[in-house]
Write a protein that binds this DNA or RNA. Structure first.
Length: 489
RNA sequence: GACCCUAUCGUCUAGUCUGGUCCAGGACACAAGAUUUUCACUCUUGUAACCCGGGUUCAAAUCCCGGUGGGGUCGCCA
């Protein structure tokens, strides 16, 4: 199909992993990485594994595991194996795999490929600062390497050699590991650390491709050395460009909305978020820019992934969200908007709610905006300044006449649906403008329609008076016009 | 600081491999106009970029060299 396919080892099953760390709610950058993994796996008929990387006991919390699962489901992303559904490589939480890691840790120790180190944090920190101040790369000096200690943290002996690997996005990358000291792979036999658990699990879970953020690029050679020491195969790597703040710094360091749940709660649609995230670093090579998840599975390609970081641009997300909101059926949108509507909305007939939502569908960028847009449908008394009732240069007297005229024609109206009301009011508005215009050539329909609309909505901007009047019904419409008139006298 | 990655409109990007069709295309944002009682939608138009300096070539956004900028990593976090 694509050139990409030829690079893939077809003898091995395509298996990708989603490895979030439950130290907080699912991060948008992580979600994007998972999305790319998901698309790649699906496209190649591969399998996906959700693996919870919770080796840091202090920072990991079960509630975040649930958030990760919930938000991924909300986005429409699923997996073949995971802590929630089990699978042949259970368990899928690293905190439950301590025995497995211990076996491999002992193997490394026995083969003298790792050793115990008793250097204190303070000592290490002092040496690090000293090295930095002398312009050297901070690296462990190997004090404990041949001391044969029987306790302490476990360090892996990093060979002094060059490690080269192929990255699917960046081609060949080379690191001189002589620049790196021996790395700590476990605090003790029961407490393994990231580099070690990743390598062991990727092997045991038979992961074929590791697609992750560029921040892991310089971690890769360490993990490759670990794979070699353990006799594991090497997965195929692809490092994605990072998601950036507007100041171009790494997005994970930003304060503000970085959790998928934030976007979820603020009324963004999963379709919009998916479409937005994939466009941050990937392009289809065509001018198409609207993609559903199934389309992405077909068209995604690692070859079209950008090499440099991408700034997170909220305006584009808003645009996409507005687009997908407009694409929704009205009834579907009502259900989505319900959480943002007052309690009383639940007592309202569904048909009525549909009319309200329909009137605002094109104006919505986020579901949450529906609250403010439509609050006047759910309150009895409107509070607005009487000055707002006047259109352009109209004085109080003129506004009052206008509203009284509207009240009269509306109370006489036989039909109260928006189409009939529009016909009736546009005709009347034209006549009203012509009658009151002393010298104006173009009848300004605003003279009748603006005061009416403001009296009904209490807002500078709203849906048309025809739509609002239909939804309000005759009685309420006339009451509001009366309330408007009362403000003027 | 060392190492690694990277560099096209304000932002996301196409084009770079295989130099000419690119006085650089699309999208968001912005501006103007049309429609319109308002806002929004929709439509039309516009502003706006090849990091810098050399070189190769008839010709460079595209190839080469050298700078510079940005990012990441250097943890008993992941």
């Amino acid at each position: 199909m694509t050139k990409m396919k030829k690079n893939i080892n077809l003898e091995k099953k395509i298996r990708l992993r989603f490895p979030p760390s439950p130290t907080g709610p699912l991060h948008i950058g992580n979600a994007r990485t998972i999305l790319f993994n998901y698309l790649f796996a699906k496209q190649h008929n591969g399998e996906t594994v959700l693996r919870i990387e919770d080796t840091d006991k202090e920072r990991s919390k079960i509630e975040w595991v649930q958030d990760i699962i919930d938000q991924l489901h909300w986005l429409g992303i699923d997996w073949n194996e995971g802590p929630d559904i089990g699978g042949p490589h259970s368990p899928y939480k690293q905190s439950q795999r301590t025995d497995i890691y211990q076996t491999y840790l002992e193997k490394l120790l026995a083969e003298k490929k790792a050793y115990f180190c008793i250097c204190s944090s303070e000592e290490l920190e002092g040496k690090r600062q000293d090295q930095q101040s002398r312009g050297l790369a901070p690296k462990y000096d190997g004090t404990c390497r041949n001391k044969n200690h029987q306790h302490g943290v476990i360090r892996f002996i990093v060979e002094n050699k060059k490690v080269t690997f192929i990255d699917l996005i960046r081609k060949e990358v080379e690191f001189d590991m002589g620049l790196s000291g021996d790395i700590v792979i476990a605090k003790n036999l029961q407490t393994p650390l990231y580099h070690f658990t990743v390598v062991v699990d990727d092997f045991l879970m038979q992961i074929s491709h590791v697609i992750r953020g560029e921040d892991h690029l310089s971690n890769t050679p360490k993990q490759i050395l670990l794979q070699e020491a353990l006799g594991f195969y090497q997965p195929i790597y692809a490092h994605l460009p990072l998601m950036l703040n507007s100041d171009k710094s790494k997005m994970s360091k930003r304060a503000g909305d970085v959790a998928v749940s934030d976007y979820h709660q603020n009324g963004y649609l999963p379709e919009a978020l998916i479409n937005f995230m994939v466009l941050l670093g990937w392009n289809p090579g065509t001018e198409k820019d609207i993609f559903s998840l199934p389309e992405l599975i077909k068209e995604f390609s690692l070859e079209n992934v950008q090499k440099s970081g991408a700034v997170f641009n909220l305006q584009k997300l808003d645009y996409l969200n507005g687009y997908y909101i407009r694409e929704k059926s009205t009834s579907a949108l009502v259900k989505l908007c319900l959480p943002y509507l007052p309690e009383t909305a639940k007592d309202m007939p569904f048909k009525q709610l549909e009319k309200i939502i329909e009137a605002y569908q094109a104006r919505l960028k986020k579901l949450s905006e529906i609250t403010e847009f439509t609050d006047f449908f759910f309150s009895e008394k409107l509070s607005y300044d009487k000055k707002m009732l006047g259109w352009k240069e109209m004085g109080d007297r003129e506004v009052k006449e206008s509203l009284e005229h509207s009240a009269k024609i509306l109370s006489d109206a036989k039909k109260f649906d928006k189409k009939s009301l529009e016909e009736l009011l546009v005709k009347e508005a034209t006549a009203f403008a012509e009658a009151s215009a002393s010298q104006g050539k173009n009848p300004d329909k605003g003279k009748l329609l603006w005061p009416l609309r403001v009296a009904l909505s209490g807002k500078e901007a709203s849906a048309s008076p025809f739509e609002i009047a239909e939804i309000l019904g005759k009685e309420k419409t006339l009451t509001r016009i009366k309330q408007g008139i009362d403000k003027l006298s």
